[in-house]
């Protein structure tokens, strides 16, 4: 693969055009269901408790008590300390438990501590690990170090699904995001993920697009198919549909599945449910009718 650069204006223009796709009627319903199925329902707060996580798992399993036909979400995403709680709450269900690890969100500690963090999460039963890259090392030009670290975490966490968080807002340019995506994919990532959600702006359409293009080239170049997870800032059903459009028109329909695409979010789910209700009834909805777990 010849190393290619990214033109920011062209990238943003393309993302802008795709964001104007008009998704109506059946396509909207189908898309919103897909968004739920691809969702990593997330709580990553200092004030998280086992009770809070248990409630979230209930919502993950049955997003809308009134509509049993809805799929459950793809995973719940929690701090390592809540993996056991979540695992128990989701037992026998297809919903996965994802844990953020490697000294999330900053990643600023020794590799040994990061490995310990990730291994512990796996031992607690996490199906998926959302690790952060060492942005400091990346920006300082120590890219091999970044790659090695991802590879070490990869080895330590098998067979868990590994999502590698680039924290794109800290990388500064689309060129860096593309380079970091490539490093993560070469080092064994199953998914590349935009953000921790702790730094703004988190996921944006152009950022997602440049990562999707990197995924496309990586696969084209003889690599594996790799998934994308957008996280942080995706709060509305409309945004979720825009990301689905991006995936569909960049990588094709086969990437429109939780195996290849995730949305990490917390408040998004209720907006999706409200939009689905609106599509059913034709009436605009009130938050009072949707559970805030």
């Amino acid at each position: 693969m010849p190393p290619t650069t990214v033109d920011a204006v062209g990238l943003e223009e393309r993302a802008g055009v795709l964001s104007t796709r008009s998704i109506k009627k059946q396509a909207k319903i189908q898309g919103l269901r897909l968004a739920i199925a691809c969702m990593d329902l997330t709580t990553l707060e200092g004030k998280d408790t086992t009770e809070r996580v248990r409630q979230l798992c209930g919502k993950a399993l049955r997003p809308d008590p009134d509509d049993p036909s809805l799929p459950s979400v793809a995973a719940v995403c929690v701090y390592p300390s809540f993996v056991r709680t979540a695992k128990a709450a989701l037992a026998e269900s297809p919903v996965k438990v994802a844990a953020v690890a490697t000294y999330f969100p900053s990643g600023q500690t020794d590799l040994a501590v990061k490995l310990e963090d990730a291994t512990a999460a796996c031992q607690a039963g996490a199906d998926e690990i959302d690790m952060v890259i060492d942005r400091g090392a990346f920006l300082a030009g120590r890219q091999r170090e970044v790659a090695d670290e991802i590879a070490r975490v990869r080895e330590a966490t098998r067979p868990a699904t590994l999502k590698v968080i680039l924290e794109t807002a800290e990388l500064g340019t689309y060129d860096s995001i593309r380079r970091a995506s490539w490093i993560a994919m070469e080092s064994g990532a199953d998914f590349i993920k935009t953000s921790t959600g702790k730094v703004q702006p988190a996921a944006t359409l152009p950022v997602a697009l440049v990562m999707l293009e990197a995924i496309r080239d990586f696969e084209y170049d003889g690599g594996r198919p790799v998934g994308l997870k957008v996280a942080g800032g995706v709060r509305t059903a409309k945004q979720a549909l825009q990301y689905l459009v991006l995936v569909k028109e960049t990588l094709g329909d086969e990437y429109l599945s939780p195996a290849r695409f995730r949305i990490g979010a917390s408040s998004l789910l209720n907006d999706v449910l409200m939009q689905l209700s609106k599509e059913r009834s034709g009436a605009y909805q009130s938050e009072d009718y949707f559970t805030k777990d």
């Binding site: 189908q30 269901r33 199925a37 799929p71 459950s72 198919p225 569909k248 939780p258």
Partner: peptide, 20 residues
């Protein structure tokens, strides 16, 4: 791309997503 089996997804959702 391997088939999706891990998450319950209605067949209609998993099929290709066409814009109305």
């Amino acid at each position: 791309v391997p088939a999706v089996t891990r998450v319950t997804l209605a067949p209609s959702d998993a099929a290709s997503w066409q814009y109305a």
